[in-house]
Structures are given as structure tokens and as C-alpha cells.
């Protein structure tokens, strides 16, 4: 059986969402779409147990002071990855705020928090990260630079989505 799932990559500006996707997928749209409509679409097929799951990845423009994430982009999503840059503590607050907004807009969806930039773990602000850890959310540490745990992140999210179906 073949399934398709819409997955959104959400997070603050510069946390490494696009790098994570680039590590993982093939796409046809260039990054100029970020500056035009604030989203870039990519896809990746993963073998999940005995079936093939096509993940349609909506890489949403990073939330910053100038631009807000369009919540309508999350409509119809099966789940999402919340990306955090642990070297920048301000991204933690943005992540928590985004999660709240998403839940408010489209309801409870399976998601995984990604602590990216594991290759710079020495620079992580562990105190700031504690705010997220205290939430009890599923957290995975990845490095888009080295590729560490990137596949695993998407697989775990797929697993969570299919479990929730």
C-alpha cells in the first residue's frame, strides 16, 4: 500500500529547516519560493514497515520579526517537525509559541521537536532547552551538517503519524 503524508517543517528563522530537508529529499522548486510565498515543497519516499510512504514536505519560511508563518499552510498536514537551534536560545521561545499557534489553528497533530546543529553541541544553551524538555515532547537531536539522525527524525515522525491514524 502506498500512502502520502503532508509534513510541515516549522521553526524560527535560521534553525536549519531547509538544510534538514536538503539532506533528505529531492525537490524541483528553488529556494526563491521562500521569499515569494513563504513555502518550499519537497518530497521524499520512505519505506515504512511493509509500505511506501511519500512524505510531501512543506518547508515553511522561518518565523521572524518581519514574517509570520502562514498557519493555513498547516491545513491538512499529518504532522510536523518543530526545529530548534539550541545555540540560539531565542529560537526556543519561538518554537513554543509556534506549537501553541499550530494547535490553536489546526488542532493537535503528531510532531517531533528537533534540536538541530548537534555538531555544535558545545555551544548549546542547555538552560533554554529545558523549557522544551519540561513540556514532555518527543525530542530528537540532529545535525543537518553531518546528516546525523536526519533520516531517523523523519522516520519517527512518520511512525507517530501512522500510529495516530
Amino acid at each position: 500500500m502506498s500512502q502520502k503524508k503532508k509534513i510541515c517543517m516549522v521553526g524560527s528563522y535560521g534553525v536549519g529547516k531547509t538544510s534538514l530537508v536538503a539532506r533528505y529529499v529531492r525537490g524541483i522548486f528553488s529556494e526563491k519560493y521562500f521569499s515569494t510565498i513563504g513555502v518550499k515543497i519537497d518530497q521524499k519516499s520512505v519505506e515504512y514497515k511493509d509500505s511506501l510512504v511519500t512524505l510531501i514536505l512543506w518547508d515553511l519560511y522561518g518565523e521572524d520579526q518581519k514574517q509570520q508563518v502562514h498557519m493555513s499552510y498547516l491545513k491538512g498536514a499529518s504532522g510536523y517537525l518543530l526545529i530548534v537551534d539550541p545555540t540560539r536560545p531565542e529560537t526556543v521561545d519561538v518554537t513554543i509559541m509556534l506549537q501553541e499557534r499550530i494547535t490553536e489553528s489546526v488542532g493537535e497533530l503528531p510532531f517531533i521537536v528537533i534540536f538541530n546543529k548537534k555538531d555544535l553541541k558545545d555551544e548549546w544553551d542547555m538552560e533554554a532547552l529545558k523549557k522544551i524538555e519540561d513540556k514532555g515532547w518527543t525530542i530528537l537531536e540532529t545535525s543537518a551538517k553531518t546528516g546525523e539522525s536526519v533520516e531517523e527524525a523523519f522516520y519517527k515522525l512518520t511512525d507517530a503519524i501512522i500510529d495516530s491514524d
Binding site: 502520502k4 503524508k5 503532508k6 525537490g27 524541483i28 522548486f29 519560493y33 510565498i37 513555502v39 515543497i41 519537497d42 518530497q43 511519500t54 510531501i56 512543506w58 499552510y73 491545513k75 491538512g76 498536514a77 499529518s78
Partner: peptide, 27 residues
């Protein structure tokens, strides 16, 4: 969801980009 359910092409063989195009349209 903006997901592609099916597609047909004038030329034989299907385009792999249908999934991305449909999602982009939705976006």
C-alpha cells in the same frame, strides 16, 4: 491536504513532479 490523488499526462509515463506541483498550488 493539497496531496496528489492521481494524475494523467498527455505524454506516456507519469510525471514525478505531480506531487510537488499539487502541493505548491495548494500553497
Amino acid at each position: 491536504t493539497g496531496l496528489l490523488l492521481n494524475q494523467v499526462n498527455h505524454e506516456e509515463g507519469s510525471s514525478e513532479d505531480g506531487d510537488l506541483i499539487s502541493s505548491m498550488l495548494s500553497a
